[in-house]
Structures are given as structure tokens and as C-alpha cells.
Design a protein around this nucleic acid. Structure first.
Lengths: 151, 151
DNA sequence: CTATATTAGTTTAAGCTTAAAGTAAATATT
DNA sequence: AATATTTACTTTAAGCTTAAACTAATATAG
């Protein structure tokens, strides 16, 4: 029986599609709730979470590295957050090219609210797994994080 | 010890972030290879895969339902595929609003090439898991597919 | 038959995303 | 000091995505 692929190519495809679907479904739920219940988006939430994690603020470049997105992308999201008064830009006094972005007071308050809801949603969604199961899931996913970086 | 959340809220968050990251990493690899090696995108691939699966063709609305994206979205992707001669639109003779989209001969040839590469990439990425492990992963992901639909 | 409602699909506005080009300031070289 | 390079960031062009508005055709109701 000639078979140029590994014996379980089909199984691999099925698992990948399941992984993609599960992750996408959960992400869609989060996006939907952020929008409907909070009037915001996942990218905005991610930027605010990064800034909340760095109370001293971040440079635009640091922010884009932390979030692993392009710097042009960060420019747009920060622009919109700034328009809404949720983040503040401070010009660097040493380097006139640079600026530090941080949450405004109202942005901080708003994020605390968002983070609480977000944690509850995740907790709810992950409820079906007991501790042992989620450990197993972590370990299996961990194995997929290694190879795909190479080649 | 007062704790208003379930005991493993933090663990739940960690697992979700791991799931999101793993899925996103793999998706990024696929996007990158589709672009660099094939000059195409994941949305285009998805549309072509759907059409390959339905040799008789699909209506625009059927396509958007099958892929679970908005109909306006499908319009744009099919437009670009049509510009490249990879799909063909056929006006429905019964209903002047409707049309059937299917892969062109060159689109079919092209997709066979893409699908082969795609399967090899997935096979490669999923290699670290043996059959038992991927069964376990499937089962765990399956549990997360149930609840999140509700509420 | 006419008015209404539904259906198929496109267009538009807004945001997300990237790569590539551009701007301006700081640093390094000669 | 003048030139070149690097760095920080923005802008642009293109594509993906959605919801909402829109167009046109079909189906339904009276």
C-alpha cells in the first residue's frame, strides 16, 4: 500500500480544523460580548491590557513588539483610544521622535471593568474542563508550540 | 477565604491564552506560506476549498453560510478570485437575482496544488502528536464546543 | 392585479491588519 | 562639520471583516 503521507494525515487535518474552530468560536464570543456589552473591540482590549500591565507606559514600538503586531497597526488603535480619552501620549523629553503611551485615569477604570468581565467570560467558557483536563490540554498545546516555529 | 470566582479562574485564563496563541501561531504559519510560496491568502483558500467541495457550484448566499462569514465579505473575495480567473459566475436562468459560483478549470488545478501543500504543512505541524494524543486533544476541544454556544 | 414582504446580492462605512514607503530625529562615520 | 545610517513613528495601499443600507427580483396577500 503506497502512501506518501504519514499514516495519520487525515487525523492531523481533523485536529487542526477542530483547534481552529474551537479557538475561533471562543474568540467570536469574546468579540461579540466586548462589542455588545462594552462597546469596544478585542484589539482595543489587547492594547489596554498591555498598558495596564505596564503602569509606567510603553513606547509605540514596545507596544507593537509586546502585542506582536505591526507598528502601523498600533498607531491606528492608539489613535482611536486617544480620541476616546482612554489613553494618553506623552512626548519623550530626551528624544523628540519618541512618545510614551499609558492608560488615562478613565481608561484605567474602564479597563478594570473590562478585565473583570473578560475573566468571568473565560471562566465560564472553560468551565467544562476540570483541573486535570486543562493541564492535559495545556501540555498537548505546548507540544504544538515548539516545532511550528522552525522550518 | 472569600473567593467569588471558581477556584481555577487563573488556570482557565492561562489555558485560553495558550489555546489562542497556539491556534494563532499555526494560522500565521499557514498565512505566511500561502502568501510567500503561493501568492494567495487564507480567505481565498477557504473559498476555493468550499467550491472544490461542491463541484456543482454554490450560490453566493450558500457560500457565505458554508464559510460562516457575511455575504458582503464573500462578494469581495469572489470578485478578486474572478479577476484572477480562478472562479466563474453563472447567472441562474430561473432567478435573475441569483448566480452560481464554481472553480474555473485553472482554479481547480491551482486548488489541487494548494490543497496538497496545505495538507503537508498541517501534517508537519501536527507531527509532534501521536494518534492517542491527537484523539485526546480532539476530545478536550470537543468539550469546549458545547457550552460556549449557549448564554 | 396591486401592494407588501421576502430573498439574492452588492455597496458603503468603519475598523483591523500588513508591508512598504515616507518623515523626522538621533547616532555613527569619516 | 558633513555625510550616512539607524531609529521612532506615521502614512498609504491593499485586503479582510462586519453591520447596515441599498438595489433589484421574486413571492405572497388582499
Amino acid at each position: 500500500m503506497h502512501n506518501h503521507y504519514a499514516a495519520n494525515t487525515r487525523q492531523h487535518l481533523r485536529v487542526w480544523l477542530k483547534l481552529l474552530k474551537t479557538s475561533g468560536n471562543i474568540e467570536a464570543v469574546l468579540r461579540e460580548r466586548l462589542k455588545r456589552e462594552c462597546g469596544t473591540t478585542l484589539p482595543r482590549f489587547d492594547v489596554m491590557a498591555a498598558l495596564d500591565h505596564h503602569p509606567a507606559g510603553l513606547r509605540m514600538t514596545e507596544l507593537s513588539e509586546f502585542l506582536m503586531v505591526s507598528n502601523g497597526n498600533v498607531t491606528g488603535i492608539v489613535n482611536r483610544l486617544a480620541e476616546d480619552g482612554l489613553v494618553e501620549r506623552t512626548q519623550d523629553s530626551q528624544d523628540r521622535r519618541a512618545q510614551t503611551v499609558c492608560l488615562s485615569p478613565s481608561g484605567h477604570t474602564e479597563f478594570q471593568h473590562l478585565a473583570k468581565l473578560h475573566a468571568q467570560w473565560i471562566d465560564d467558557i472553560m468551565q467544562p474542563l476540570n483541573v486535570e483536563q486543562s493541564d492535559t490540554l495545556m501540555a498537548l498545546l505546548e507540544q504544538l508550540t515548539e516545532l511550528e516555529v522552525s522550518s
